[in-house]
Design a protein around this nucleic acid. Sequence first.
DNA 1: GCGGAAGAGGAACTACGGTTCCGTATAAGC
DNA 2: GCTTATACGGAACCGTAGTTCCTCTTCCGC
Lengths: 191, 191
Amino acid sequence: MNAEQRPLRADAQRNLERITASAQALFAERGTAAQMEDIAAHAGVGVGTLYRRFPTKESLLTALVRGRFQEFTVIATEIEATIEDPYDALATMMRRHAETVEDDAAFQLAMMSINSFQWEGIEEDKSALNAVVLRIIERAQRAGAVRADLRIEEYGMLMCATTATMYFLHDRGVWRRHLEIVLDGLRSATA
Amino acid sequence: MNAEQRPLRADAQRNLERITASAQALFAERGTAAQMEDIAAHAGVGVGTLYRRFPTKESLLTALVRGRFQEFTVIATEIEATIEDPYDALATMMRRHAETVEDDAAFQLAMMSINSFQWEGIEEDKSALNAVVLRIIERAQRAGAVRADLRIEEYGMLMCATTATMYFLHDRGVWRRHLEIVLDGLRSATA
DNA sequence: GCGGAAGAGGAACTACGGTTCCGTATAAGC
DNA sequence: GCTTATACGGAACCGTAGTTCCTCTTCCGC
């Protein structure tokens, strides 16, 4: 197969890093509308070089999105281990996840469409995250802090909604308000 | 000025209606990605004819969006006059507004970007709607049914979020779940 | 140092979709 | 019926942005 071939040549490695960084920066700033030529220029390479590493724009975006998405799992795991209070753990996770997305327009779009678009290989990442999130939700439910009818699939939905307020409403901070209202809505009716 | 010129020729009037209906149908089904040629074909006319009435795709979309947006005001006004219970009025308005958007992908996108995109002339429609919504919100607040810190600008934000769950999550009904949680979050902390 | 495989660059190619243009058709008034 | 302003159709045009391709360069093992 196309195996893990020998390491990249030194210059290629260097360029790959610059490309990745530039792509991250431009996608964050301009969303998925960022152009391949601009990314290449920003990285100081030609488009041909860019296409050698990432055969399509989508593959470039996907690589970046997966990388950032995996941070979600790291964050959730860290919170699970750190925060005692079951409700606080859930609330903090949601806030931290939203903050992760805050300054990256392309990532915002990716998060919203995570369930309606085929991001090559994202399914693995998604189930890894789901496992941790599920534990955090169930812990909060067992403690009676969160409505019992909250289902794991709804986590993505709530994040999608929160992210939309960032993406579409260019008013830093509104999303916090949305999340606050949602969190209030998640508290047990009998709290 | 370009005044209200004489009425359209009979055939032109007929075509205008078919164009409007086709555009509405295709934008609803395919979102803003619906193509001008397809719309013309669906209406049984050439693109030239389409462009005679609507000089740009954006103008066509805007006309449709404004039309649908105005329904919002009608709905809100009707609810204000009909529903006694202050909380119920607010909740019903949100549900009805969301339902209005439900089967129209382009309109969903328009609603989400209503504050970040220049929809020619939408400002008027927006302030007409705002007046009614404000009364409904304040009535609910005076009754102590809804958190006192809810601000009128947040209505659009909540609808944006709810709409996003329709647009991105292709699961009819999730949005109702989102709205339910939000509505719970809106109830007075002291309710 | 040399040979060649791996890499770089960027002009050119392509597909797509909105928009224009103009020759032809037709409604509507005399 | 005739005239003409209005309208129609759709091929052609154009800009945009992703992708390809081919020539030239550079790293790296012998």
